[in-house]
Design a protein around this nucleic acid. Sequence first.
DNA 1: TCAAGAATGATAATCGTTCTCGAAAAAAGA
DNA 2: TCTTTTTTCGAGAACGATTATCATTCTTGA
Lengths: 126, 126
Amino acid sequence: MTKQQASILRVIQASPFHMTADEIYLAAKAEMPKLGIATVYRNLSSLCGEGIIRKIEIPGGPDRYDRNTKPHDHMVCTRCGEMLDCSVELEDFLNRIEAGGAKVTGYHLQVSCICSRCLAKEDASA
Amino acid sequence: MTKQQASILRVIQASPFHMTADEIYLAAKAEMPKLGIATVYRNLSSLCGEGIIRKIEIPGGPDRYDRNTKPHDHMVCTRCGEMLDCSVELEDFLNRIEAGGAKVTGYHLQVSCICSRCLAKEDASA
DNA sequence: TCAAGAATGATAATCGTTCTCGAAAAAAGA
DNA sequence: TCTTTTTTCGAGAACGATTATCATTCTTGA
């Protein structure tokens, strides 16, 4: 593992958030000023390939990277934009698809929601 | 509805597939050679806004447009690339999320699979 | 018929990402 | 250690999908 890759990984491991490539780039560049964006993408891609981090592809926005590699789903609040992990699991759904004859190799679910915090805020102001 | 919009809509209604903006552009341009790509995007966007067609946003690929506006999910075969409609529904899953306190305003699910046709082909050749 | 507003089409701009390529660094041989 | 080979880097160009800009061309209604 190169210095660059170590730095990129450290940034991701240190953050509880789902960071974009650009956010990771800026954070890693802070401790390694000559770092290039291409290097960030290259290393994110190989870290994903090795299963060390996980890429979350978001329609209409930049990809995000997650230190939690265990498959799980995400929810994006349409009010505050925060991305939350989704606690409920999809297994039943996927099982039913496989019962239909296809083999599921992966999936991506993104739920848009108004998170409980924003809902509470709206209730308070109404 | 302008001639352009009518032509774009006709192309979508006529196809059982989920077409990209570019495919729609090429098909509509065949009957209207001066058509511009910007007009296609503009009209796709307003047709979506009116609920006449549905946009399917695909991570890592161009958006696709579906004449079927009823919310439903999609499956992409990782072998042949075909996009299939998903028959099983997600309601239980979404209900459980709402039980957790957030209000679901929408979702996007894409399942990667090997479709039954490709599986059969592989079994045959093995 | 003319003016006001809307929609068009060509093209530029944008954004996230990937590609290219010479330079630098690391690893492997002798 | 001193080359040689391989890998990775970093800067910037290129890319693909989409959106913005803007002058021109329709509509439409007074």
